[in-house]
Design a protein around this nucleic acid. Structure first.
Lengths: 205, 205
DNA sequence: AGATAAATTTAGCCGTATCTAAAATACGTT
DNA sequence: AACGTATTTTAGATACGGCTAAATTTATCT
């Protein structure tokens, strides 16, 4: 069975997962940025994570890192817990979607397998968290979804918002006030060529 | 305001609180025992806790420790969180009373003030946890209760079980199966003089 | 290509909280 | 009051995961 990874290592793996979702590698400086620690500290940890048994990342000097299968599984496990907690806090404890991220960030490391199972059951095996992010199931399989980034949508096209994968409470409160939440129906009105500013029509607004 | 104390320090303070409930001092070896660490490590920590600003314990070599007011408040804060979590797990997530202690032991350190407040509200400001232990209120005031230890009860006397302050799941499952839970009405049938074995009559049994 | 800038790694350090082994202190018994 | 035992403290080491400063590698720009 897999060993229990430290709180810190879990955070590294989770961040590497997020940074490599589009298929590339995560760089030392990207990780230093999101983890808010020095690049030197990141290098140390990457060396460690690549030389454990099993290794959690593949790493070559100056080349960035990618998760191994063991690393991906560990990352998905944390991600599942994180998103289940977010869903639970909204559904059962009256949190709003801008309040749940920071709380989940801490609780995910303190959650037992039993608690994970019970929350999953109480929520009837939810497939998405409050931001619309997919929750891996018990086997760590992700539900697959047809989605397109708003930045790739054609002007004039319509769509339903699936995900608003932001962490910043202030941004989320602003978007929420505008009605831009998972489930909302929108039409892309215009896009300015250089600064990527977009105007969208939100249903009922 | 009070600084945030490390996970470990919180555990020390909580244990010292429990060990000094009857008024005495907690010794190095008692703490080493309950925290499952070496006596030498305990000594180190006690020296540290007694020289912080503010100090959390009063400590003199070879004399054991007692909590200062700051220490007591910190301990009650953790105890409140611990017991709220226990109550919540039983009330909202289908846990049984023998499963909650270990879970709460970890979660208590990961709980924000906001989560504490929400759980307290959802449970309607509970006064006791599933073991019957009192939950300090928001100001860390303990509800006071008239109680007597079973070992001090006269043979033939009756009473209602208020607290079963055990942590061991196996013991709790056994007691639960016998009906010995908070709320149960009992009569003390006999007590053997030397080994303190007692026989009790439990209502409806 | 050569120079400079940016990113990354190395080297050495720090604080926290643990440990073991050895020294010091306190205590119970005679 | 003194001996032997138990308890506690000191001293020194270790693991973890950060840090800064300096060195190195890679990228960019004429």
């Amino acid at each position: 069975m897999s060993k229990k990874l430290s709180h810190n290592i879990q955070d590294y793996l989770k961040r590497i997962y997020e940074l490599t979702l589009q298929g590339g590698k995560a760089t030392t400086s990207q990780l230093a940025e999101v983890l808010e620690i020095s690049p030197a500290s990141v290098t140390n940890m990457l060396q460690k994570l690549s030389t454990t048994e099993p290794p959690y990342v593949t790493y070559q000097k100056h080349q960035g890192v990618r998760l191994t299968e063991a690393g991906r599984m560990a990352a998905l496990k944390i991600l599942r817990r994180h998103r289940l907690i977010e869903a639970f806090l909204v559904a059962e404890l009256g949190y709003s979607w801008d309040e749940v991220h920071d709380e989940a960030e801490v609780l995910e490391h303190a959650m037992s397998a039993r608690l994970e199972t019970r929350i999953d059951a109480v929520l009837k095996h939810p497939k998405f968290d409050p931001h619309g992010d997919p929750i891996p199931d018990e086997d760590l399989t992700l539900p697959d979804i047809k989605q397109i980034a708003l930045s790739d949508l054609s002007v004039g096209a319509q769509g339903a918002i699936l995900r608003v994968p932001h962490e910043d409470p202030e941004v989320l409160r602003y978007l929420g006030k505008s009605g831009l939440q998972p489930g909302a129906l929108i039409t892309l009105l215009s896009r300015t060529p250089y600064d990527q500013t977009m105007r969208v029509q939100i249903e009922g607004n």
